[in-house]
Amino acid sequence: MRGHGEPKKLFCFDCDRLICRDCTIIDHSGHKFEFLTKCAPESRKTLRHSLAPLQKVAADMAGAEKTLVSEEAKVERQKEEVCRSIQQSFDKLKTVLDQRKAELVKKAGSLAQEKKEALAAQKRVLQVAQGEVQLLVEVVERNVEGTSDQDLMSIRTQLATKMEEEEKRHRQLSLEPSATADITCNLPSPQVIPDDLGSVSDRNTPRLFTHSPNTIELGSPVEVSLAGPTASLEDVSVSLKCVADPSSSLEGEVVGNGVGIFSISVTPQVRGRHDLIVKVKDEEIAGSPFRVFVKLPPSQLGRGQVRSIGSLEWPWGVAVNNKQQLVAIESGALGGGKGVTVMTRNGEKVQTIECNQFKGLRGVAVASNGAIYVTDIVMPSAFSNSVQMVNS
């Protein structure tokens, strides 16, 4: 590879590209660059080291797949055991019980089938993800070990970024089985014909087995997967509430796949701390509400419109209290401490606390319990600073 008639033996880190010696003077003056003979081995070492987390993900997925296969076998064995118990019990009953017996045997088989289908569906997802990860590992290893310095440096950023993205994405995939082999039954007594001639049930409690990261960007959906083998689509509901603004509650979309696994999605409309509430048959599942933090995406940071909030004489500091209100401190025109003003986000004054006893207010902070702390700077011949608490 040549540029300006010279071989490209250097790499520009500012532009992330190969350059020649003339480029350092013509197009890349003042940039950070280094000879390939030095930077390529370092990048090769860094990429090789970065493979470790991804390889750990692949190993964990391989182990989880073995667990799923084992759990499938346990479900089948447990189904057979339950069916034998049912058969032995109902053989002691009269012909009138045969219909009920057949229903329960069918229910046991149906429940076991649901469990196996749920495990099989999860296993297919895991196999696909494992294949993606393994393919990426092979691609990176092949490029790290078998490409030239120039080719490696040309794609090193792409490889590192792709490995980081795949690791984060696949870390969200649950490696725990979505169903377990705990089928049970209530057997009828041979001596008494009960009103309820037994039942087959699943002791599983509905639970999440995949979920979005705890922190997401505004505009991105919160996505979770719920394992609830005994639940129907109508039984599952989800809502997302902003802690600072409960009126912003949103209902999530629930989609069932027919094998006891439900996909849930809801997109927050405001930033801040949210509670994700998941219910099955009007009862919250274990762990609900789940905490989600919604932040602005990097593209929006620092690009908002600037506007004035409130009218203060000599403001020196501002903080936000536990009610999402603004707490600002003011000094008088000649110094001293005029007061603390509590305002809404729109600038409407809620409370004013006079602080004439202070000499020089210069900073403010608010504790989680609402207590307001200010810094008081006294400036005679020598400096004497202190932190004071203001009763709000």
Rank of each mutant, 00 (worst) to 15 (best):
S212M: 05
K107P: 00
G339W: 04
Q88K: 15
E42W: 13
T215D: 07
A129F: 00
Q388I: 07
E348G: 02
K323Y: 06
P206T: 08
E34C: 03
L136D: 03
V139Q: 14
E34Q: 13
G363F: 15
P289F: 02
N214M: 14
H274D: 10
V254F: 08
G336C: 09
P221M: 07
V222E: 03
E166G: 00
T161K: 11
I216A: 09
Q172L: 14
R362Q: 13
P315F: 06
A52T: 12
V69R: 00
R17E: 13
K9M: 10
Q150G: 01
V82N: 03
S212Y: 05
N204A: 12
M153W: 02
N321Y: 02
L175G: 00
F11H: 01
S85I: 03
L296D: 12
S43A: 13
R303C: 05
R271I: 10
I377Q: 08
R142S: 11
V378H: 15
G3T: 09
Q127V: 06
L104Q: 05
P229I: 07
V255A: 13
R48K: 13
K123P: 02
D235I: 08
A58V: 02
A286I: 11
A371E: 11
N321E: 04
S392E: 14
Q325I: 06
P190T: 02
E65P: 00
E176L: 01
G317N: 05
D195R: 14
Q127R: 07
A382C: 12
R207S: 11
C185P: 00
E71H: 00
C185V: 09
C15G: 01
K38G: 04
Q324M: 05
I372Q: 02
M389S: 14
L10P: 00
T24L: 04
L301T: 12
I193N: 07
G310M: 01
V133N: 02
D195K: 14
I377E: 08
L135W: 06
V96C: 12
G258Y: 06
K349I: 15
K295I: 14
D98F: 06
E114G: 13
E138Y: 02
S239F: 02
V374Q: 07
T341L: 05
A227C: 07
T95V: 15
P41L: 04
A118V: 01
W314N: 14
V125Y: 01
C20T: 01
G310W: 01
Q113N: 12
G228D: 11
A382E: 15
Q351R: 14
V266H: 09
G347M: 01
M1L: 09
P7R: 00
R307Q: 14
V200W: 05
K74Y: 01
S249R: 11
N257C: 04
C242E: 14
E313I: 08
K168Y: 06
T161I: 06
R77W: 05
V350K: 05
V306S: 08
L250R: 05
R84M: 12
D16M: 10
T24D: 06
S189T: 11
L93A: 10
Q300T: 09
Q324A: 09
L296S: 10
N385K: 04
E217S: 12
L276G: 07
Q324C: 08
N346R: 10
